[in-house]
Design a protein around this nucleic acid. Structure first.
Lengths: 133, 133
DNA sequence: ATTGACCCTCCAGCAGCTGGAAGCCCTATA
DNA sequence: TATAGGGCTTCCAGCTGCTGGAGGGTCAAT
């Protein structure tokens, strides 16, 4: 299977697939013409990676998950730990973004947004005390 | 004012301040010894940047905000627009992360996490149909 | 004079791709 | 058989926003 078809099948851009080969997440065979020749197994791996990436796992986590996936003697606890840590990171990130959203929302609401220069958003950024009312 | 003091005053690492000079967000003067010599105005700018960055604005947005800040004839509508677009981006990012969290949470809950190999998380990543029950 | 804390520049690297150049290969059609 | 197009190859550079480190100058105090 050529890279273009694999790209279609896995949803990953060809460039990304080459990159994944580069960092040794996948090791496709090569045809006589030098083209990559992907097996079903390779395609399956790439789909696995695409899904894991879409859930936000880092490349290194993907590597770990993939090796656990291929290890018949794995303990599900190991998988769960990777996922749980990632879940915590996501939760922290959401909190961080919600804090930003809160502050920004307040400022945006207070800014009348017309052609005059006075602006609570800039006042806040400049560290000026802003009226709470 | 030397970079170390400015770092303390603005909360930005010295490295970051040098970087900001590099990309021309600030243009401190130079002393005879080659040291950067920051004015009050520079320090103020850097504090502005630190605050804007902490609200998640990109460097280029910061540049825009800074120039609006320094423009006495600005329209607050322009500021508001930058902030509103950023707010939308944050909201979209939060949604994305919440979707990830939702999926992951389900999988983690379903995984018993013991020393046996069967694992709904890996099943999902591998694209296998998982039991909904 | 020496010590130690500060400052300088420049280069490299992080994540995870993505774009582009230069060039080979394969297939179909005229 | 020549040619046109698409797909494939490699390699290098660049994106964001810093951060670390090497190698070296400067300053203030002892």
């Amino acid at each position: 299977m050529n890279i273009g078809q694999v790209s279609d099948a896995s949803g990953l851009p060809a460039k990304t697939i080459r990159y994944y080969e580069d960092i040794e997440l996948v090791r496709p065979a090569r045809g006589a013409n030098g083209y990559r020749d992907f097996s079903e197994r390779d395609v399956h791996k790439l789909a696995f990676l695409a899904r894991a990436r879409s859930l936000g796992f880092s490349i290194e986590e993907c590597r770990t998950l993939l090796s656990l996936y291929e290890d018949r003697d794995r303990a599900s606890a190991d998988v769960k730990q990777v996922a749980t840590e990632h879940l915590d990171r996501i939760a922290r990130k959401i909190e961080e973004l919600e804090a930003m959203r809160g502050s920004l929302q307040t400022l945006v609401t207070r800014c009348h947004g017309d052609d005059r220069p006075d602006c609570p958003i800039l006042d806040d950024l400049a560290g000026e005390k802003t009226a709470t009312a």
